[in-house]
Design a protein around this nucleic acid. Structure first.
Length: 311
DNA sequence: CGCTTTTGACCTGCGC
DNA sequence: GCGCAGGTCAAAAGCG
C-alpha cells in the first residue's frame, strides 16, 4: 500500500507494562519541530559513508526504501510497518517523504479534513434506506470522486515497542473502532481513534508476527488539542517534567517514550546540559547515547539497521 | 446511563 | 469484472 508510515521508531518496553510504559510527550511539537532536531550525523564520528548507517537526522528528514526495510526486518508482506524483532534496544525512524516544512502537517491535515468531510457525508448517505415494500435495504452509495483523485493520508509514524500489552498508554484517550485480522499474521490489527471531538488522529496497533513481543503502533494525523488531564495514570509522572513538551503550544501527542528516547528538541547534545537533565537510571538507550561524546554507540545499538535513500 | 469494546458487514483500492 | 486485503461503520454487548 502507499499508506506507509512516514516514520518508524523502535523502543524497548519489555520491562514495563501499563500506563506509564509507553509515555511519549510531544508528537505535534515533534511534527512541527523535528526539523530542528540536532543532526546526529553532523556531530557524530560515524562513518557516514557506511551504507548500513543512517543517522537519525537522515531518518527524520528521511526517505528510505520500505522494500529494503521490509526485507531487512522481515516485514509482513501486507504491512510494511511490521518490523522483525531485534535484540537491541533501539529506536528506528523510518521516514517516508518527510515534509521539510514545519507546516507540513497543517496542510496535510487540511487536505485530510476534506477527505474526512467527504467520508462523513458518505457515512450519512450510507444509512439504510427504506425499500418500496417497507423493508430495509442496504444501498451502496458511491462516493463521488473526481477522476484521478486519490485519497490523501495524514503523515504516519510507526513505533515498535517491546511490550506485553497491545494498547500502550500514550496519554490520549482512544476509542477502538475496529479490528481486523492481518494477513500472514496470527495477530489482529486494532484501529483506534482519538476520542476528543474534532480530533481525527487515529492509530493502529498490531503485534509483529515475527516477534510477538513487539507491538507496532502507527499514528496517523496530528492532535489538535492538549493531552487530556484525566488519564488512566497521570501523564505527569510518565516523564520527568523537563522532558515534557519544550513548548507545548500544540497538543503533545507523541508517545512519551519516544520523546524520552528521542533527544530533546532544543538541547545541545553532548553538552553537560543533557546529562544533567536525565538521571541515568531513567535513561533509555538513545539518551545514553546522547550523553556520550562518542555517538558511535548508536552504531552499536543499531547494527543491523539497513536503510537507503529513496530515489 | 454513558462510554468503550466487539464484531460482522460494508467500502475502497489495487492487482490480475 | 472479480477477488483480496485493508480500513471503517455501527449495532449490540459489556463495563464501571
Amino acid at each position: 500500500m502507499s499508506d506507509e508510515p512516514r516514520e518508524l521508531y523502535y523502543h524497548d518496553n519489555q520491562h514495563g507494562i501499563g500506563p506509564t510504559d509507553f509515555s511519549f510527550s510531544n508528537y505535534n511539537s515533534f511534527l512541527d519541530d523535528y526539523s530542528n532536531v540536532p543532526s546526529f550525523a553532523s556531530s557524530s564520528p560515524h562513518n557516514l559513508n557506511d551504507p548500513l548507517y543512517m543517522s537519525l537526522t537522515e531518518c527524520l528528514h528521511g526517505s528510505m526504501d520500505y522494500d529494503l526495510l521490509s526485507k531487512a526486518f522481515g516485514l509482513s508482506p501486507s504491512s510494511s510497518e511490521v518490523f522483525s524483532s531485534s535484540n537491541y534496544h533501539k529506536q528506528v525512524h523510518v521516514g517516508g517523504e518527510i515534509p521539510a516544512s514545519p507546516n507540513f502537517s497543517v496542510s496535510s491535515s487540511s487536505s485530510e479534513a476534506g477527505v474526512e468531510e467527504d467520508s462523513n457525508k458518505n457515512k450519512n448517505d450510507k444509512h439504510p434506506k427504506e425499500s418500496e415494500d417497507g423493508g430495509e435495504v442496504i444501498k451502496k452509495v458511491i462516493k463521488p470522486k473526481k477522476k484521478g483523485e486519490k485519497r490523501q493520508r495524514e503523515p504516519r509514524f510507526a513505533f515498535m515497542t517491546k511490550s506485553e500489552v497491545d494498547h500502550l498508554e500514550d496519554g490520549y484517550r482512544w476509542r477502538k473502532y475496529g479490528q481486523k485480522a492481518v494477513k500472514n499474521s496470527p495477530y489482529p490489527r486494532s484501529y483506534y481513534r482519538c476520542t476528543t471531538q474534532k480530533c481525527s488522529v487515529k492509530k493502529r496497533v498490531e503485534r509483529s508476527f515475527q516477534d510477538p513481543s513487539i507491538v507496532i503502533t502507527t499514528y496517523e494525523g496530528k492532535h489538535n488539542h492538549q493531552i487530556p488531564t484525566t488519564l488512566r495514570g497521570n501523564s505527569s509522572h510518565m516523564l520527568p517534567t523537563s522532558l515534557l513538551t519544550p513548548a507545548p503550544m500544540v497538543a503533545p501527542s507523541f508517545p512519551r517514550e519516544l520523546f524520552v528516547q528521542m533527544p530533546p528538541m532544543n538541547y545541545s547534545y553532548g553538552s553537560s546540559t543533557s546529562s544533567n537533565i536525565y538521571p541515568s537510571q531513567n535513561l533509555t538507550s538513545l539518551q545514553q547515547f546522547c550523553q556520550f561524546p562518542d555517538y558511535g554507540l548508536l552504531q552499536d545499538m543499531v547494527p543491523s539497521l539497513v536503510m537507503k535513500q529513496e530515489p
